[in-house]
Design a protein around this nucleic acid. Structure first.
Length: 534
DNA sequence: TATGTCTGCCCC
DNA sequence: ATTCTGC
DNA sequence: GCAGAATGGGCAGACATA
């Protein structure tokens, strides 16, 4: 089977609106593949094309550079076209029509190309490899070969639907496929096992990450959900979600994206090599100093470090706050109720740098406000509510865990610039840069797109075009007249914007047609919020 | 060698 | 991360 | 209610340029 056929399938899936139609198309296709291609196709479609999750380190920018080099076209022009089309891979594929040789490409050939790209360390040589593909393969094939690089197929189908298609193609119950997928962590393995009716033989393995159970955000505080039964409460820590595997002196730390980051945190993992009985902990990685959790910003300085200096380890030492136990005593505990997992967790002889997250029973929903404030006073993000008796639903964002966060504040700001969107928003100005007032000047403080409906974005696009003063490629500067109310979860000093501040998780609450720009919030107000948040 | 900009992403 | 949208 | 898509910020590291 060929990459060309897979590409054609992707196009058909993209143009099918109904998810059941997408599923049927994929299931029918999967049935036609031999075992080797089944594994490859599943990896390609689920967004992790390489067998062991190796990194490609190639993004849209590199693709455009390769395309410019292969065609002789101006890079700026390609950038512009990509922007209009909303997708670099698509436009590059079109560009190669009539220029590439149109050679056939098998799935295993495509996989070999990706492996070669991952193995190549030099950025320039990565680009050279891509140039060679561009000249060799047909546009449609290129389109999806390139899309797999950036990990965004944008055909309305990702890993979860691939799971469903596997279930359908093999006539196995979806729940069995999902459970096996969690135990395995490798959808290709699952597809093969489903085909051969051996899903039950897939075992969870220590030192292979399980999926994480996620929490659903609580929309409004006084919500009826909490009346449904007893709940447990913990602080929500502002670190990185991690799974810690330990057994027989070996320790591994995995992130939510299943990345093995053990090597980056010797100050956590080396002391744990004394642990012998096998266990898997779920919890949060934090910088921990003077007996207290430090900011997420401190932790960020430990991320993706190639070299760990003693100074860094001394300045930003990490700890692990454990709040769940997924494996112990040779047993997977996912289907044990929360209270049992918790009791086992508390019975373990864990020592710093591992801590156990304090947990208490929520007496009544009225208690939430006070608990929330207390958590914030401890410099934590908010609360995590866990339904009594709930099981560990790996890979799901079900209602059994609820996270309670609140915006730090809101600001009334004015739009100073707008940017063309991507994908289905490619024809609209969907991305707004906004400013606060400082005397008679407007100083940018952030960008946001979310919070407006598609209809509002359409209206705003029209209005902003009429307010345009200058255009720099994809960015339109506008007269500062449109006022928005934006919410955000944090604020910090940043060179990113003229105001000297930037927001964490900015989102638009509403379009304030009632407010003139002279009355928006000021830089002084921003400083007040900043100081108060320290 | 020092500094500035771009890129992709163990992250949130 | 957040938010909206189609199914 | 789920899954997908489109978008925020900061960071280290890589590369470009002085």
């Amino acid at each position: 089977m060929t990459m060309d056929a897979l590409a054609a399938l992707c196009d058909r899936i993209a143009s099918a609106a109904a998810r059941t139609r997408k599923l049927n198309l994929l299931a029918d296709y999967l049935r036609t593949l031999d075992d080797g291609d089944l594994a490859r196709a599943v990896r390609f479609l689920s967004g992790s094309p390489l067998p062991d999750g190796r990194k490609l380190s190639v993004g849209a920018a590199t693709l455009r550079a390769a395309a410019a080099s292969a065609t002789g076209w101006d890079l700026e022009l390609i950038r512009f076209c990509s922007r209009v089309a909303g997708d670099s891979a698509e436009i590059i594929a079109l560009l190669m029509a009539g220029r590439s040789a149109g050679l056939p490409l098998s799935l295993s050939g495509a996989e070999q190309h990706l492996l070669a790209l991952a193995a190549e360390r030099s950025k320039a040589r990565k680009q050279k490899l891509i140039e060679q593909w561009l000249l060799a393969y047909a546009p449609l094939t290129l389109k999806y070969l390139l899309k797999t690089l950036t990990g965004m197929l944008r055909i309305g189908l990702q890993a979860k639907l691939v799971e469903e298609a596997i279930a359908r193609a093999s006539a196995q119950p979806l729940e069995l496929v999902r459970a096996a997928s969690n135990r395995s962590g490798d959808l290709a393995e699952v597809a093969l096992a489903a085909r051969h009716q051996t899903l039950d033989r897939i075992q969870a393995r220590l030192f292979h990450p399980l999926d994480f159970m996620l929490a659903k955000p609580l929309e409004s505080m006084p919500d009826g959900v909490l009346d449904s039964g007893p709940w447990w409460v913990e602080d929500k820590y502002d670190g990185i979600r991690c799974q810690l595997h330990a057994a027989h002196g070996k320790v591994r730390l995995f992130t939510r994206g299943q990345e093995d980051v053990t090597a980056s945190y010797p100050d956590l993992t080396v002391p744990l090599s004394a642990i012998h009985p096998p266990l898997i902990l779920d919890g949060e990685l934090l910088v921990w100093r003077d007996g207290a959790p430090q900011s997420f910003n401190a932790l960020q300085q430990r991320l993706a470090r190639k070299r760990l200096t003693p100074a860094l380890l001394a300045e930003c030492p990490v700890a692990f706050i454990a709040y769940d136990l997924l494996y112990a005593g040779q047993t997977l505990l996912l289907n044990e109720p929360l209270e049992r997992r918790r009791a086992l967790l508390e019975s373990l002889p864990l020592q710093p740098p591992i801590h156990i997250a304090p947990q208490r029973r929520l007496a009544s929903p009225q208690e939430l406000d006070a608990l929330f404030e207390a958590a914030r006073a401890r410099r934590n993000e908010g609360l995590l509510l866990k339904r009594a008796g709930s099981l560990y639903e790996a890979g799901r964002r079900g209602g059994a865990w609820i996270k309670v966060k609140r915006a730090l504040a809101t600001l009334d700001v004015v739009i100073t610039a707008a940017e063309q969107g991507r994908g289905r928003r490619a024809t609209m100005l969907s991305d707004y840069t906004f400013a606060v007032r400082d005397g008679s000047r407007f100083l940018n403080i952030g960008k946001a797109y979310s919070g407006l409906t598609d209809e509002e974005i359409r209206q705003l696009t029209r209005l902003l075009k009429s307010l345009a003063t200058e255009r720099f490629g994809r960015v339109v500067l506008v007269r500062p007249e449109v006022v928005l109310e934006v919410a955000f979860d944090g604020i910090q000093k940043s060179p990113r914007h003229k105001s000297g501040f930037a927001m964490r998780f900015p989102r638009i609450l509403r379009w304030r047609k009632d407010k003139p720009p002279e009355e928006i919030d000021t830089l002084d107000r921003v400083r007040e919020i900043y100081v108060a948040s320290l």
